[in-house]
Deep mutational scan, measured.
Amino acid sequence: IINNLKLIREKKKISQSELAALLEVSRQTINGIEKNKYNPSLQLALKIAYYLNTPLEDIFQW
């Protein structure tokens, strides 16, 4: 999986903590996703895309 979450999140000036709060997950979860240590569920990936107002395929590429 190619993961552009960190790049997109930083472009939008959103911290890991802010995104985690919006998604109701821990900051460690966001960190793990960004470091490719954790693959989000489809539901979480869709929520990330929604809150970042970015197409899912721009954030994650399988």
Rank of each mutant, 00 (worst) to 15 (best):
residue 1 I to V: 12
residue 2 I to E: 10
residue 3 N to S: 05
residue 3 N to W: 02
residue 4 N to C: 08
residue 5 L to K: 01
residue 5 L to V: 09
residue 5 L to E: 01
residue 6 K to P: 04
residue 6 K to V: 06
residue 6 K to N: 05
residue 7 L to C: 13
residue 7 L to I: 15
residue 8 I to N: 03
residue 8 I to S: 04
residue 8 I to C: 07
residue 8 I to Q: 05
residue 9 R to F: 04
residue 9 R to S: 02
residue 10 E to T: 13
residue 11 K to A: 14
residue 11 K to F: 08
residue 11 K to N: 11
residue 12 K to Y: 04
residue 12 K to P: 01
residue 13 K to P: 04
residue 13 K to W: 06
residue 13 K to G: 15
residue 14 I to E: 01
residue 14 I to M: 15
residue 14 I to C: 06
residue 14 I to F: 09
residue 14 I to H: 04
residue 15 S to T: 14
residue 15 S to I: 04
residue 15 S to W: 03
residue 16 Q to P: 05
residue 16 Q to D: 05
residue 17 S to F: 12
residue 17 S to E: 13
residue 18 E to D: 11
residue 18 E to K: 13
residue 18 E to N: 09
residue 19 L to T: 00
residue 20 A to H: 03
residue 20 A to V: 03
residue 20 A to N: 01
residue 21 A to D: 13
residue 22 L to H: 14
residue 23 L to W: 01
residue 23 L to F: 02
residue 25 V to H: 02
residue 25 V to F: 03
residue 25 V to M: 06
residue 26 S to T: 10
residue 26 S to F: 03
residue 26 S to Y: 03
residue 27 R to Q: 15
residue 27 R to N: 07
residue 28 Q to G: 14
residue 28 Q to R: 13
residue 28 Q to I: 12
residue 29 T to V: 14
residue 30 I to L: 13
residue 31 N to S: 13
residue 31 N to M: 14
residue 32 G to N: 15
residue 32 G to R: 14
residue 33 I to S: 01
residue 33 I to G: 01
residue 33 I to E: 01
residue 34 E to Q: 02
residue 34 E to G: 05
residue 36 N to Y: 09
residue 36 N to M: 11
residue 37 K to E: 14
residue 37 K to Q: 14
residue 38 Y to Q: 09
residue 38 Y to V: 14
residue 38 Y to G: 06
residue 38 Y to E: 09
residue 39 N to E: 14
residue 40 P to C: 08
residue 40 P to K: 01
residue 41 S to F: 04
residue 41 S to K: 06
residue 41 S to Y: 04
residue 42 L to H: 08
residue 42 L to M: 12
residue 43 Q to G: 12
residue 44 L to G: 00
residue 45 A to G: 06
residue 45 A to E: 02
residue 45 A to R: 07
residue 45 A to V: 05
residue 46 L to C: 14
residue 46 L to R: 10
residue 46 L to G: 05
residue 47 K to P: 01
residue 48 I to G: 00
residue 48 I to A: 04
residue 48 I to H: 00
residue 49 A to R: 02
residue 49 A to I: 02
residue 49 A to T: 03
residue 50 Y to Q: 08
residue 51 Y to F: 13
residue 51 Y to G: 04
residue 52 L to K: 00
residue 52 L to Y: 01
residue 53 N to P: 00
residue 53 N to V: 05
residue 53 N to F: 05
residue 54 T to M: 08
residue 54 T to Y: 06
residue 54 T to P: 00
residue 55 P to Y: 04
residue 55 P to S: 10
residue 57 E to K: 11
residue 58 D to A: 08
residue 58 D to N: 09
residue 58 D to I: 07
residue 59 I to S: 00
residue 59 I to P: 01
residue 59 I to H: 03
residue 59 I to F: 03
residue 61 Q to K: 11
residue 62 W to V: 12
residue 62 W to I: 12
residue 62 W to K: 07
